[in-house]
Simulated assay, not measured.
Amino acid sequence: MTPRLSTVILPVRPWREGGRDQWLRAEQLGFHTAYTYDHLSWRTFRDGPWFGAVPTLTAAAAATGTLRLGTLVTSPNFRHPVPFAKELITLDDISGGRITLGIGAGGNGFDATALGQEPWTPRERADHFAEFVPLLDRLLTENVVSHHGTRYSAEEVRNIPGCAQRPRLPFAVAATGPRGMKLAARHGQAWVTTGDPKLFEDGTPDQSLEALRGQLGRLDHALAEIGREPGAVEKILLTGFTPERNTLLESVDAFVDFAGRHLELGFTELVIHAPIPDSDFAADQNVFEAIATEALAQLGG
């Protein structure tokens, strides 16, 4: 499989003040997919501009023509599968079938309490996720859906005509634990990881590679348990959260070295953040663009 290079555009720029230009530039640079985060606010960006993922992707779909688009990632923290399915079907239609849904269990950040609820425990997050994903799968593939579950209900919900992509738009399931891996194996067309968070501060690149090797092995095991081949699911690494995060975008050579080691491990798609000045994602725009246009060629992709 030819390796893919994609980007994440955080929704922090007003559309008419550089936001639109970023998505157009991502297409011009040849990125496979441009994703955005699906949060109500996020970390150090909480007190600044932050726009909604679905409207942003809708505008990006209208502005671009070939670039794939998606979330990285959506979670049940503030989403309900019934109205969200309708939004996704509409978005897939507007884009002409260019949407990938990155989806995960969510965390304990601002989204977890924005609706006035107590933050879920890790087990509660996993429980919601385990019901959310199969129900969303049904809502995007069946014309009429009823479901009466522990956490979500749907009563004769119509989703006609369904997705532009058949049988539905692809899911990229973010998971590291056993329950999430099983969901990725059963429902995912791709699997997403950011690495091992325990190694974020003090881990080494070699430790990170070994942790990722273990995650890939657990995914392969989950796939084998249900009779799917390892190659049936793409492996996506969202970069910027491993020990190399501060040097990753310093030069094309630095990125090529990083990418080569991780593609050899088994990843099929690497995702880099579009630079945001004065933030954790600050980087030289020229280097970022050079990586986009030169890195895969150096790797033989």
Rank of each mutant, 00 (worst) to 15 (best):
R218A: 15
F255W: 05
E27I: 05
G266E: 03
Q215Y: 15
V8A: 06
V54P: 00
L101M: 12
P230D: 04
A259D: 08
H39Y: 11
D137E: 13
F255Q: 05
S75T: 14
I9N: 13
L265N: 06
Q189H: 07
A211T: 11
P76K: 02
T58S: 13
A62N: 03
I226P: 07
R20Q: 15
A164T: 14
D202M: 00
E87T: 11
G195Y: 00
F200N: 01
A172P: 07
D280Q: 09
T2G: 00
Y152V: 01
T150M: 07
P81R: 06
T7L: 07
D257A: 14
P243H: 09
T71Q: 03
N77K: 01
F129Y: 15
P205Q: 11
E142R: 12
P205I: 06
W191A: 03
G149N: 12
S208H: 07
P243E: 09
G301W: 13
I291C: 10
G149L: 13
T90F: 09
P197I: 04
L69Y: 13
S146H: 07
G177A: 14
L69R: 13
N246C: 00
V157R: 06
T239M: 03
V133A: 10
E156D: 15
E27T: 05
C163G: 12
L299Y: 08
G231I: 01
P161W: 12
L40N: 03
G96P: 09
N108M: 13
Q28H: 09
G203Y: 08
T121M: 10
A126L: 15
R138T: 12
I9C: 10
L91V: 12
G116R: 06
E131I: 06
Q207N: 03
E269P: 02
P83N: 08
L140S: 03
V73G: 10
T113Y: 02
